[in-house]
Nucleic acid binder design. Structure first.
Lengths: 296, 296
DNA sequence: AGACGTTACGAAGGGCGTAAACATG
DNA sequence: CATGTTTACGCCCTTCGTAACGTCT
């Protein structure tokens, strides 16, 4: 299973075309055809249906492996390259949207020879730090207090807690529950929620944390900015679990604390391991107490 | 970065000899030398010191990537092979030592055309299920209630909660704390502990969960059986955090519940994904409520 | 001198491109 | 018939083994 073939296969599957893949990869169409045939012969399974081109079931399955494998290969190469020649140029910091305020603070302290701040999606962030497209990443998410965020490990990367703040249920001031001082998550399962996976706590995670079904939503918010979502909540379209900071700063909203299970909004720092050897035991290193962040 | 070269490199690094690696891999010494040279040329770094043969710093680094990459490649191949031809023969169930009782129960229900029960280490278990050396695995560990155990993902494997039981602090009956009905983990940081990472909750995990240092130990227990460790605790060598079942069954020991942070002993079922496509969202699927197991 | 890794060289195999054949709508 | 994939074939490059050559103890 040559990574070369694997890569070609993934491109063909993505573009759903041998010829388009050939162009993207700089091969002839014939070569691509041969590579796919070779991979299929090696594995003894048909991976792609032709005309129209689409992955078979086995092909879909292989795709779930191929991505991580190719990513790790790239990460390994990038890591070794970093060891030999230190990169010149500005510090490239990546951040997920909701961690951007934390990134700004961090960058203010570190900025020396220029700075590039780039807002990227969660998966992209880890990928880019691993492949040396970023020097540093800030990742946000929701978890139990002092619990690490789930991050797919790609090699010896250091992931350290950077800060956390309480997560609160965002409610319009006029909402009947807005007067309460605390709310149990399970009691909110029947409420109407806004599905905003990139900003608020994802609804599946709420279901898991509460151990119940529910948390249904009629409104989906696909943006990455808090301000927009806050407006949607204020308009009464539904609830959302958000970092306390921005909710409390909004004039028309109330942020109500969660009783058990408590959740926090957490920011973690991702960076390539520098001095030490091997990957640190993530479980040990990350469940420590961390300073609470002030603003969102 | 051909996996072939990667594999050769890891073998040379492990055996610390080009010639021995050549024998193990079925190549000539010359070929091994050329492969290593090719890999070094490709990456632009010296990976091995010669005479004596030992990985350089960059080599050590590469080794941390190579293992997972080669494992995933093997897992992918095994997975696709499983899709095409269903394996004949007995059901091969692997289990970590402390999950063996659960495995026995499970096996009793499933046994049809023979059964092989194999006790293996934690890492081996996941590895063997991924590479189709096992059909099924039972994995144990300690975590917060209803929290998944941390398992390195190797592909679309289904990891489901199988059961859990409270974790208790094992104390000799004569111990001053044995009369308490519950104990806070943080208060036990100064006690003497037994370091038994394969049976009891690992001390680093306790430190992490309590958010404090401490949990020092003078005695280490390297076995995988609970009975032996229970005897060591009964002899007064120190404390250990263990599943409630076996502790309560021991005549000379008392098991005291934990206050916050509460911990449970958990058993999870690992098996290759059957019908569905892609890997299920682990975070969603696994934080569900699970039945409590009776015995340990 | 002996053990072990490297280098030189020739043979076999694999992989790519060109071009012709083939399938599908 | 047009578009797009596969097959045939020749060339080149890679990689292995044999064997001669360093080099360290």
């Amino acid at each position: 299973m040559d990574p070369h073939l694997l890569r070609t296969f993934t491109v063909v599957a993505r573009l759903r075309s041998f010829s388009a893949a050939a162009v993207e990869l700089g091969y002839t169409q014939s070569a691509v055809s041969q590579q796919v045939a070779a991979l299929e012969a090696d594995l003894g399974v048909r991976l792609l249906d032709r005309r129209p081109v689409a992955p078979t079931f086995a092909g879909e399955r292989l795709l779930t492996y191929a991505g991580p494998i190719l990513l790790r290969l790239a990460a390994a190469r990038a890591d070794l390259a970093r060891l030999t020649a230190p990169r010149p140029g500005p510090l490239r910091v990546g951040t997920t949207a909701s961690a951007a305020p934390a990134a700004a603070v961090l960058a203010a302290g570190e900025a020396v020879a220029g700075l590039v701040l780039r807002v990227v999606a969660r998966d992209e962030l880890v990928r880019q730090v691993a492949t040396d497209a970023l020097d540093l990443g800030l990742l946000d998410g929701f978890s139990a207090p002092n619990d690490p965020l789930p991050v797919t490990e790609l090699g010896p990367a250091e992931i350290t807690a950077y800060g956390q703040q309480p997560a609160v249920v965002a409610l319009p001031r006029t909402h009947p529950l807005a007067v309460r001082s605390a709310l149990a998550l399970a009691d909110l399962a029947v409420a109407r929620w806004i599905d905003a996976p990139d900003v608020a706590a994802p609804l599946p995670q709420l279901r898991a944390a509460a151990g119940t079904d529910g948390f249904r939503s009629a409104v989906r918010y696909d943006g990455t900015d808090v301000a927009g979502l806050l407006a949607v909540v204020a308009a009464g379209h539904g609830l959302a679990l958000l970092p306390a900071g921005p909710v409390r700063a909004h004039p028309e909203l109330v942020g109500v604390d969660l009783g058990e299970p408590r959740l926090v909004h957490r920011v973690e720092l991702v960076r390539p391991t520098r001095g030490g050897e091997g990957s640190p035991d993530r479980r040990d290193g990350r469940m420590m107490k961390v300073a609470d962040l002030p603003g969102g």
